[in-house]
């Protein structure tokens, strides 16, 4: 059996890669994908913990995260398209995310 901690570190690596993508990329679509990746890494964490604790709560949680991810993508892509029609660009630099 592969210990839980291995899964956790794997998912942490994926989470951080996703987070780096959100902060580093300017293309909104890729940012959406990175967020999806982050949610997936959380799912991995949850499932690993569910096995460790031998209860189903973690798996139920994963179910919900999947529902949320689907809803988020639907809404997010709708926003993206609306913005694209507005500005003909999804380059997030124009949005200037990090402006204080």
């Amino acid at each position: 059996m592969v210990p839980t901690s291995y899964y956790l570190i794997l998912s942490a690596i994926i989470f951080v890669i996703g987070a780096a993508g959100v902060l580093g990329r300017r293309n909104a679509l890729i940012i959406v994908m990175c967020v999806e990746m982050m949610l997936n890494s959380v799912n991995l964490t949850l499932i690993a913990f569910a096995r460790q604790w031998d209860n189903l709560n973690g798996q139920v949680f994963v179910f919900l995260v999947m529902a949320v991810a689907a809803a988020e993508v639907a809404v997010g892509l709708a926003i993206l398209i609306a913005h694209y029609h507005q500005s003909k660009s999804t380059n997030i630099d124009d949005v200037n995310v990090m402006k204080w």
Binding site: A19, A20, L23, G24, N27, T90, D93, M98
Partner: peptide, 16 residues
């Protein structure tokens, strides 16, 4: 929409 340039801003990736 695809970003053909490097795609990274100067300080954010480092901070990230």
């Amino acid at each position: 929409p695809l970003d053909t340039r490097a795609g990274y801003r100067n300080w954010v990736p480092y901070a990230g």
